[in-house]
Design a protein around this nucleic acid. Sequence first.
DNA 1: GAGCACTGC
Length: 682
Amino acid sequence: MTLYRFVNPDEKLEYGEEKSKFEGTISSSFVYNPYMFLDLQTQRNKLPITKYRNEVLYLCEKFQTLILVGSTGSGKSTQVSQMLLDCGLCKFNKSIVITEPRKLSAITLATRVAEEQNTNVGHTVGYSVRFDNCCQPDTKIKYITEGILLNEMMYNPLLVNYSVIILDEIHERSLMTDILMGLIKKILKKRPTLRLIILSATMDFTQLKSYFNLNPGNNPDDDTAAVLGVEGKCYPVSIYYLNEPTPNYVDESINTVLKIHQSRKPGDILVFLTGKEEIMLAVNSIDDYNIKHTDDKIKLLPVPMHGMLTNDDQLKAFRPTPRGYRKVVFATNVAETSVTISGIVHVIDCGFVKLKWFNYKFGADSLITVPISKASAIQRAGRAGRDQPGKVYRLYTEEAYNNLTNATPPEIMRSNLTDVVLQLKAIYIDNILRFPFLSPPPAKNLLYAMEMVKALDAIDKYGNLTKDFGTIMAELPLPARHSRMLIKSGEMGCSSEIVCVLAMLQLQEPFIFPKFGNTIYKAKKMHRNFEVSEGDILTLLNIFNGFQKSHNRKQWCNRFFLNYNELCRAQKIRTHLLDLMKKTKIEIKSCKGDTRIVVKCIASGLFKNAAYLHYTGVYRSVGIEEDLYFHPKSLLHYVNQPQWVLYDELLETTKLYIKNMMVVTPSLLLEVAPHYYSSPTL
DNA sequence: GAGCACTGC
């Protein structure tokens, strides 16, 4: 927040450099702060939460769990921890921990709170996220990501070093939050002195209260949970609906942008669409409009905003709108939770969102476009009222709004739970079907996960974590099939290679695919330099090795149309994994170019994901009566189709797509997974 | 022929 306070407007800013330390994740340190120019104490006094100091402290004293409901801008994430610290709740060498769903929130909040406490971050106030631990043994307030707390529980199941746990952004209902809530509920029963504070924007708090209320009887005096509402800082937002439903929300959103523009109402516009494709379409339409309307006094400045943009491109949406322009940001759901763009007066909401939904039948994630929930619609509308009264144009009818569900189903209900089961087992949760989930996931998803964990040898036939093997699998920050691969690679003597493969498989998109002109073909040609007959996964290894050997890595990436930021991330992940391998005693050894060993090792992790070429010309998975296709981004798309492949992932969009595959033979499958395959099935 | 958003000592 403080980064750009004293920058001269004429200075050319190197946005890209400044952000690179946050490793390419989407990031906004531009959280809106209307009191930026006042001194810190005055700023703090103006926050709505400050008025509730006595209530917060009283309720914390009296109740074990406090649910604090308040919309954005109330100051709860920064102030509550400090109130508790100031009144001495950190006695006996215990500290306060606050979990955040995103790394950047943890870092910026800790930096801010340290500033308010008049210290540097890393002393009294610190943060801890993957790759970046900025805490000391005497740190009293720790802002950490949710995964870190879960990890701490594996070594310290009762979290005895904390006197207060604060869970932030509970309304987002991330997979991790839901697991943490279940685990902390168990801890609360065993540690009556522990305090839990739940911070949430709009959400059904009666459900939360009864979930955390450990009162065994009916007497309200014995309640252990309380709710406190705090108002936020938000300007009124007028809502407009369509009279008739629209057949095409992308076109409708562009029409609405132009209507706002032609009516000459001032203010920037934020448009919510569902994906990259739609966003590019919309940006192009506005560009076309600009070409035809060069005489407009104020010009439209279309800006895309989605997760696949490079750092520099992401930051364009945050730059102040130049004089003579009206900024129109076309965004996915990133703009609903992860980033805040100031200066937005008009919000256009298409009413849909793309969600990942786990399908236990195929063991695949499906990406589906569904209507948003009322909570999302309200959240999106709120983006218009951050610094002045705003307007939201909903591209659906009022009746359609009334028919929306109250909230999006929490992530835990629609996720592959394999890793969750593994982690819960590692925290000594024996009966996972009886775990106190706030929203219990479908039983079939849980059974799928348990079957998977069993097939990977992480649990024995009694459902206990296998000694060493399963325990190490749970400790590694990788999907279970990848953890298995890494452990096996130690035994097979190819871990130096596998650790690179795994680092690459964690990336979202190592390739750059240009959209226009002859660069499309040039990129394809350059990518084919890395192609090998064994398939995508070894191609990734080739790329990683090339990247490491290259002298000027950035230049090298540009030449081969590869994503520099992503490859740097792969390198960080590799270093991190090598560290963990030393700790967990996985031998680090190279097979010195013997591809057969690498292939065999990969197969020992992915054996469950086998597909064969059906006589119809498409692929069929063993056990799934469904056509599978190579993902269009697969480099082996145009060469001869192999008879048998293993794949890392299955993704359902318009079809069931195989992502990252490797050519295998049935005999190899029998060799690496005799417990899973028998010759007749192959 | 095409992928929402995050995260892991």
